[in-house]
Nucleic acid binder design. Structure first.
Length: 349
DNA sequence: TAGGCCATCTGGTCCT
DNA sequence: AGGACCAGATGGCCTA
């Protein structure tokens, strides 16, 4: 069944794979390999390159209106290489049209690529409508996620949760690591099945890991001061946590036109949760709360005391690695599919 | 203001 | 020949 998950995403992943490899320098071609020296034909006379811009009128492959101007200038020695071509108004016009068409294609291509990236964002851990992962982070996270799922298949058993998150967060930036850890809601000491009793998708008793399979509005998160639009509501922000979604859990309201992400499915894991709630209260703590949301900037001692675990880029403890606040963190976003049921079953073996 | 991220333009290269 | 792909350059936007 996991293969179905792969197949759903695979086309996009394949589309993006070359890109991420290039981004990570694993498959990049050097300019020296690709770009030969400019030939005479590449530059028209008087066509000084400024930055990357060239005269649009001079494009390779325009042969129609060739004019032999080799002997222009009389005694000057003949230049080697292809003959130069005089730009007639007709050629200039055709070049412009060709360039415009090429630009349009390039835009379309990039839009397709971005669409594929958006699709990918929706299936990797931690989807947020309001705060998208960057392209590079999305690709890295997707790679880690695929690897993690592959490990599950290979081992055929529930993974150790900490190493699972470490795998997911490998190579990710600190903010993204915080986001992922926050979405997965790790807590080493306890978990709140009693607070959020509607069946955990991931429930690892020994490591207190609990994620809910359906959207759930935790009552405490419904308090006005913690709602969108209130002064305490986290604004859209880089490295904020928006309405992040953990894709292993499925929201029935996904695809609903009413879905705005803000009101659904916060994660209810008590350690982080209680901190958020406490800091929601007073104006004095508001600043800290805001800071904590963006940078998880609680003190290291408090963070570790409250959360038990802190996740660095590769799982190392770090003072900034406190999971994010949760009143607009969302677990559930995807249509429920047998894939997730199977994952659920797998994690409950 | 610096830095990160992004969209777009552009020209070179490769492929069909 | 034309389209796809790629990477460099550039400028805008946003946030710390």
């Amino acid at each position: 069944m996991l293969t179905r998950l792969f197949s759903e995403v695979l086309p996009d992943v394949q589309k993006l794979s070359g890109w991420v490899e290039n981004s990570e320098g694993e498959n990049s071609k050097t300019n020296e390999e690709d770009l030969g020296p400019l030939e005479d034909d590449d530059l028209d006379e008087g066509d000084a390159r400024e930055g990357s811009s060239r005269d649009q009128s001079e494009m390779a492959g325009d042969d129609d209106d060739d004019v032999d101007d080799d002997n222009e200038g009389g005694d000057t020695p003949k230049k080697r290489g292809p003959k130069k071509r005089k730009m007639t108004p007709a050629r200039i016009e055709r070049s412009k049209v060709r360039r415009q068409k090429a630009n349009a294609r390039e835009r379309t291509r990039m839009h397709d690529l971005n669409s594929a990236l958006d699709n990918l964002r929706k299936v990797v851990p931690c989807y947020s409508k309001t705060q998208k992962l960057s392209k590079i982070e999305t690709l890295r996270l997707a790679k880690n996620y695929i690897w993690a799922l592959g490990e599950i298949l290979r081992n055929g058993k529930r993974p150790d949760v900490v190493s699972y998150v470490q795998t997911l967060c490998k190579g990710l930036s600190q903010p993204t690591t915080n986001l992922v850890a926050g979405c997965l809601q790790l807590n080493s000491r306890n978990f709140l099945t009693e607070q959020c009793p509607d069946g955990a998708l991931f429930h690892v008793p020994n490591s207190s890991f609990s994620v809910h399979p359906y959207s759930y509005q935790c009552p405490r998160l419904s308090s006005p001061q913690c709602q969108p639009g209130s002064s305490r509501h986290m604004r859209t922000h880089n490295y904020g946590y928006g309405d992040a979604v953990y894709p292993g859990a499925i929201s029935p309201e996904y695809n609903s036109p009413d879905y705005e992400g803000h009101l659904s499915s916060p994660v209810c894991v008590n350690g982080n949760f209680s901190v958020s709630q406490q800091e929601c209260g007073s104006p004095d703590t508001d600043r800290n709360y805001h800071y904590a949301m963006h940078y998880s900037g609680l003190s290291a001692s408090r963070a570790t005391a409250v959360h038990g675990l802190a996740f660095g880029p590769c799982g190392s403890a770090h003072s900034e690695n406190v999971p994010p606040p949760f009143h607009d963190v969302h677990l559930l976003h995807h249509d429920r599919t047998p894939v997730y049921d199977e994952l659920n079953a797998l994690f409950h073996k």
